[in-house]
Design a protein around this nucleic acid. Structure first.
Length: 429
DNA sequence: CCTAATGATTCACG
DNA sequence: CGTGAATCATTAGG
């Protein structure tokens, strides 16, 4: 970097020597006479310039004025304008036509959809709500995040609008400024109204391209915000105890066919104040995890089974209360499904323990109670120690139903993990 | 801090 | 499309 100055210094004598514009160092050897002549010329030129500048600007002004006031001037300008029109402008005009910008339209649409542009405040929150609803309908309990999202969105919106306004104002100002300027200049040079118009449209195009940048960055901001919001949605919250209980209750009381129908899901969702997709997620997870390691869920299963059994008993004893988590589905499809595959078990259950219930059972409750009872039975019947119970359960819970899985013999997996440790674990409340 | 639990997401399949 | 399976990412508990 500082090579350069040093070089210049060291070579100053030579380097500057031949420079024509610098009269001060003309004593460089060879070109003596020539240099003197040039010096003379330059001096003259400088002198002339000085005199011109010093001389009358006034005079020039006066001449201009005279020209402007000449009576032929308008006509002349008209002609010149025409010529201009025919040449320059026509050429420019040819390349001016542009297709309606698809990208701009896309941006506009998106901003409108996100509620950034479009009508005032109300639109914003409505759009935010719509966005939230669209993103899975998780409108139940993430109100904090939701309001956060809304606040951020309205912030973006505000910035967008102020910027847009600023741009518009600047555009208008600039346009009028240019128009005035051109009008001013039209006195001194040929400018047709058409040309002004064209200039204005050029200005507008420039500004709209700036606006497009604004829109683009706004879109980006919204996207980022949105993705963050979605990420926040991914931030899971454990369901509350009650919800888990309800879900588990349903799961274990429909263990033979733990596939809630759409209506059942809706009902569960309502009961647990979660969304239907959350219910689906829960059941998906539950099924796979239960199946994967039945032993681990044994205690839970027994617990819920016992509970629902008691519940069912009470219900059927009282006769009137249709409170148990049975659904049309469990009565219909699951029933037939189960009957065909494990009718024997069903019968055996009935014959063993079902007597007391059988009389009072309502059709809809049969399935769930069969599931329930099976658990109770297996619990009470074979519950000598953890290991045997474990080995006993794993086949029965699933294979007997022939149902919702293809018996991948999980006992080998479950027994080492849960067996020796005695089935206790925690009280799992 | 580590680990298990758990809700959500993704991908393949029928 | 609903599921199963694997996986991710966060939470809760030690």
């Amino acid at each position: 970097m500082d090579e350069q100055p040093r070089m210049m210094h060291s070579h100053a004598g030579v380097g500057m020597a031949g420079h024509p514009g610098l009269p001060q160092h003309m004593q460089e050897g060879t070109g003596g006479a020539d240099g003197d002549g040039r010096k003379q010329d330059i001096g003259d030129i400088l002198q002339q310039i000085m005199t011109i500048t010093d001389q009358s600007l006034d005079e020039a002004q006066a001449r201009k004025h005279a020209l402007n006031c000449h009576r032929m001037k308008p006509a002349l300008f008209n002609v010149l304008c025409e010529i201009k029109e025919k040449t320059v402008l026509s050429i420019r005009g040819a390349q001016e036509e542009e297709p309606p910008d698809a990208q701009l339209m896309r941006l506009d649409n998106m901003l409108l959809a996100e509620g950034v542009s479009g009508p005032e405040k109300g639109g914003g929150s409505a759009a935010a709500a719509a966005a939230a609803a669209a993103s899975g309908g998780a409108g139940a309990d993430n109100s904090a995040e939701h309001s956060d999202y809304r606040a951020k969105l309205s912030q973006i919106r505000q910035i967008y609008h102020t910027e847009l306004e600023k741009y518009e104002q600047a555009c208008n100002e600039f346009t009028t400024h240019v128009m005035n300027l051109l009008r001013e200049q039209s006195r001194t040079r040929p400018i047709s109204p058409k040309e002004i118009e064209r200039m204005v449209s050029i200005i507008h195009r420039k500004f709209s391209s700036i606006q497009m940048q604004l829109k683009q960055s706004t879109c980006e901001a919204v996207m980022i915000l949105r993705s963050r919001f979605l990420d926040a949605r991914r931030k899971r919250r454990n369901f509350n105890k009650q919800a888990t209980e309800i879900l588990n209750e349903y799961f274990y009381s429909h263990l033979s066919n733990p596939y809630p129908s759409e209506e059942a899901k809706e009902e569960l969702a309502k009961k647990c104040s979660i969304t239907v997709s959350q219910v689906s997620n829960w059941f998906g997870n539950k099924r796979i995890r239960y199946k994967k390691n039945i032993g681990k869920f044994q205690e839970e299963a027994n617990m819920y089974a016992a509970r629902t059994a008691v519940n069912a008993a009470n219900v059927s004893a009282h006769g009137s209360q249709a409170n148990s988590p049975s659904t049309p589905n469990s009565a219909g499809s699951a029933g037939s499904f189960n009957m065909s595959n494990s009718g024997d078990l069903f019968m055996s259950v009935q014959s063993m323990n079902g007597d007391s219930y059988q009389g009072a059972q309502v059709g809809a409750n049969v399935q769930s109670q069969v599931d329930t009872l099976r658990h109770v039975i297996s619990q009470t019947g074979g519950y000598s120690d953890g290991l045997t119970a474990n080995q006993m359960y794993s086949p029965q819970g699933i294979n007997a139903n022939g149902g919702w899985q293809d018996a991948t013999t999980p006992s080998s997996v479950t027994s080492p993990t849960e067996g020796p440790g005695s089935v206790h674990s925690d009280t799992s409340n």
